[in-house]
Nucleic acid binder design. Structure first.
Lengths: 341, 341
DNA sequence: TCGCAAATTGACAGCGCTGTCATTTTCCTC
DNA sequence: GAGGAAAATGACAGCGCTGTCAATTTGCGA
């Protein structure tokens, strides 16, 4: 038979309620008493019955993670991080894919809440930016934390400084001696595209390099758009010696096009991306890119949420550090072909 | 205040127990009674309290999905399918990453079971093939279903005929006129490698083509191993006109190496892969490959499990159909370079 | 050492549902 | 139409825990 709280109480010589207090880390339990109870719990390998706890306390010990994101790599990482945090505090996690554009989106969230009664929600992009969701959650009294929301003020969760990351990526190219550095912009609808372009400009300006519109080409985050952009860049009379693509897929496309033009990467041209998706390691040369600590971000968002849920604080917006992943696709300025024409 | 089962009972003019019977789809409720209850439930928008149900019935209405798989695309799809099935029967799903090679693997599974008390488990590769897990689960009385286990006899779950799929892939190449068809084998430790190689042989034999060991090269499922294998193949005096790689990463490597050798795909050489991972669409030309209906497979595995859990049957091993994804990397035999030397 | 507030502990009911078993109703068969 | 089996329904306790509030113990100043 399963060990119950009552059994622990008997073994420790206290009332069930006291065991409950220890279990829930409540105040007003004397040190020695607490230790006796903890010892008994450990000795009997006691596991509280989650349903009984929920029923009695009207909490579910459940965190639901909402997503509508085609990038499974990203999602799986975030999910793993959220799980890490949930495990730490003995919460469960459920995942829920949703279509944020669908008409019945809010209704579905409502159903989720009334059905599973999660104690809190983790929102991931683009659900983070849904205009009407915050009102619904406030009304239902369900706390939530967001991962990389566009609007950071007043939000609880986690984010990364993409603009600064892009800037440092370009700084890296400049440090390698590059002066003619091209940029392939991402899909115009994504906030990330703007942040990354801004970081590119920041770096050029800081290094006193001119911003040359001919070197800035619009892509749309796809491999094919990277190929197309690179074909234009490599056909220029004074072609760039380095290309910063706004994501890894486009960087892979640029590398492809380089091969097409008889250019060796990184000997003749350096290429870098953003996101550190698997494709950056699956092709050769492996792409220098920016890594988001996605798992860590999931963990942090969940920890902020748990703080709020457990009444341990207000929660805040945490900024995490990015990391340059230096790989084989970037190298020193080609000496045989100095950029000064 | 929340609507409870008792409220529904009062509204329908029956006892709570009868409402419970309707809720759980039990026998021995007269048609009209059932309808009255269902009507009352709908009118009051009744949602059973999951914890109360669990506590009273000693079931958790929870399915846990165990994984230890680096391919997030695959996982996310399987997960979505499992969720589909769980939603259908009002079960919740939790996900749990594990290290199947870790020493404490079994212990961790035990902890999961005693902590969350799932009513059933979904196992995904390679956890499906863990030698000691079935014994533990039987001992704990936790039913489970497997996705693509090596050992199919007596197992419950879902699988795909990879050997036949490989055979049809090669048949496609033969139908295009190819006669010198190479194969890049996968990592020797994976069962899939053997199945796919066998399918390759089957197709050759059925077409009366010789099996040429020089055209069969060991890879290890990585991009790099595909490049290495292709370099050897393209250096042969009589090089193959088509290459069937055992997965998409290696196919991408083969395409890369083709460019290196000045070969155009598919004009000079056709290349195909297996798995339909994103890389098959992210590079150019997009790779002809085999699609596993992963989401459907997750759904089916979960449905089999639910059948068992709900005492609706024994469950069985379902075989799902694969699908050839014809893309741009395969084409007719080059007319300028007939294989007859 | 006594008295009182504060800290600690415990008794008990009840969270919302289902299992068990008793009771009532229905449906046959003769 | 009576009798009996089977089907349908209901009464009631209790799943394992926590909230509320009462009882007890402790700590501390006078």
């Amino acid at each position: 038979m399963r060990v119950r709280l009552e059994d622990v109480a008997r073994a420790a010589g206290v009332s069930p309620k006291t065991v409950s207090r220890v279990l829930n880390d409540e105040a007003n339990v004397r040190g020695p008493t607490r230790e006796r109870v903890l010892a008994a719990m450990a000795a009997m390998d006691y596991r509280p019955h989650p349903s009984a706890r929920s029923l009695a306390s009207n909490r579910s010990f459940l965190v639901a993670m909402l997503y509508d994101n085609p990038s499974s790599n990203y999602l799986t990482e975030i999910q793993a991080g959220v799980l890490d945090a949930c495990d730490l505090h003995h919460y469960s996690m459920m995942v829920r894919p949703l279509l944020s554009e669908a008409e019945d989106f809010l209704e579905r969230v409502g159903t989720l809440i009334s059905h599973h009664r999660p104690d809190g929600l983790i929102l991931t992009p683009p659900i983070t930016d849904h205009p009407a969701l915050p009102a619904l959650l406030r009304e239902q009294g369900v706390p939530y934390a967001s991962v990389s929301p566009k609007q950071r003020d007043g939000a609880i969760g986690v984010g990364m400084d993409e603009r600064l990351a892009a800037r440092e990526m370009v700084n890296h190219l400049i440090a390698l001696g590059h002066r003619r550095i091209a940029h392939v912009i991402g899909h115009p609808a994504h906030g990330a595209s703007g942040w990354r372009l801004a970081g590119y400009s920041d770096a050029l300006a800081a290094a006193g390099l001119p911003f040359d519109p001919a070197l800035v080409i619009e892509g749309e985050f796809s491999f094919g758009s990277g190929v197309a952009a690179a074909r234009r860049l490599f056909s220029l009379a004074r072609r760039p010696t380095a290309v910063f693509a706004a994501n890894d897929d486009m960087a892979a496309g640029v590398i492809w096009a380089a091969g097409e033009h008889g250019l060796s990467v990184p000997r003749d041209v350096s290429v870098c991306g953003f996101d550190d998706t698997p494709i950056s390691r699956q092709i050769w040369p492996a792409i220098t890119t920016i890594r988001q600590p996605s798992r860590e971000m999931g963990r942090i968002a969940a920890l902020q949420l748990l703080d709020v849920m457990r009444g341990r604080g207000q929660g805040r917006m945490v900024e995490v550090p990015f990391a340059l992943q230096l790989r084989e696709s970037t190298g020193p300025l080609p000496t045989a072909a100095p950029e000064a024409g």
